[in-house]
């Protein structure tokens, strides 16, 4: 078998390898015949998909793609609303933080859209809410109102030492989250004090950590006080005889508030 041949020899070999049985390239031609053997498919085997099936399956994908953006927005809103509702009932800290974050994202998105549509004129609802957000807060009004009770309840359900840390982290994260409990209708008793905190945070956004800690402690004490008041009000409304050593039938929130108030009392005692 000759090892050297020209390009033209190669082309001739490729063209005629099926018929070459003798000569210097007979072995190579035989090898090429061997590799040119194709597999035989069985009669049972069918194509994986027919064109008619492809047309039937592609159509829904096109539809989904067309309405994909809308669907995603709806899903995001529904998920954030669900998480907000979960925060009302009482869920772990990371879930609540995620709910806050997602609602913030929605808030910003709505804000951007409404800014683009209606400009940056201030609205009456903005002055009521007084959210010290860096960006104009007028479009975020409905979302902020929805957020308010969630964050307030979450702070009420936390134990006292963890609440300090949470307030710190919340104050470091963003001003909108920090001030959300102050604007809600459920948080009316602490609205005055929190408003003062609001004004401080607005006037000096880069306040020191000590100040924030002090404010958070004040918030904490006011929250505890209000929860104690709420429990007493609930008990008085129920007007059931309280037997010492037996816990009355209360809702989950009342139980949690009781524990918080007792923990705060213990802390004060210490």
């Amino acid at each position: 078998m000759s090892n050297q041949f020209s390009i033209q020899d190669s082309e001739d070999l490729i063209a005629e390898f099926r018929n070459i049985n003798e000569g210097p390239h007979a072995d190579l031609a035989q090898a090429l015949r061997a590799i040119s053997v194709l597999p035989k498919i069985s009669n049972i085997a069918m194509p994986p998909m027919y064109p008619s099936q492809v047309a039937a399956t592609v159509l829904p994908f096109k539809t989904v793609k067309r309405f994909g953006t809308t669907t995603l927005i709806v899903i995001a809103l529904a998920a954030s609303a669900t998480l907000g509702a979960a925060a009302l009932v009482g869920v772990p800290e990371p879930v609540v933080q995620f709910a806050k974050h997602s609602l913030q994202q929605v808030q910003r998105a709505v804000q951007t859209i409404t800014n683009a549509v209606s400009g940056t004129k201030s609205d009456a609802s903005v002055s009521v809410i007084q959210t010290p957000v860096e960006t104009p807060a007028e479009p975020s009004t409905p979302v902020a109102e929805d957020l308010t009770p969630i964050a307030g309840d979450v702070q009420e359900q936390k134990p006292a030492p963890a609440q300090n840390q949470d307030n710190k982290s919340a104050s470091q994260e963003s001003s909108s989250i920090q001030d959300l409990p102050k604007t809600g209708p459920d948080a009316a008793p602490i609205e005055n004090k929190s408003d003062s905190n609001d004004s401080e945070s607005i006037n000096s956004p880069a306040s020191s950590n000590e100040k924030e800690q002090g404010n958070s402690n004040q918030n904490e004490s006011t929250v505890n006080e209000t929860t104690v008041n709420e429990t007493t009000v609930n008990e008085s409304e129920n007007k059931k005889p309280v037997i010492p050593g037996v816990t009355p039938n209360k809702s989950h929130e009342n139980n949690s508030s009781d524990t918080h108030s007792s923990s705060s009392e213990n802390k004060e005692g210490d």
Binding site: N3, Q4, F5, I7, S10, L13, I14, L28, A31
Partner: peptide, 11 residues
Amino acid sequence: HRGLTQLNKDL
């Protein structure tokens, strides 16, 4: 051409 030459050598 290069492939066939090399294949021939390998054979």
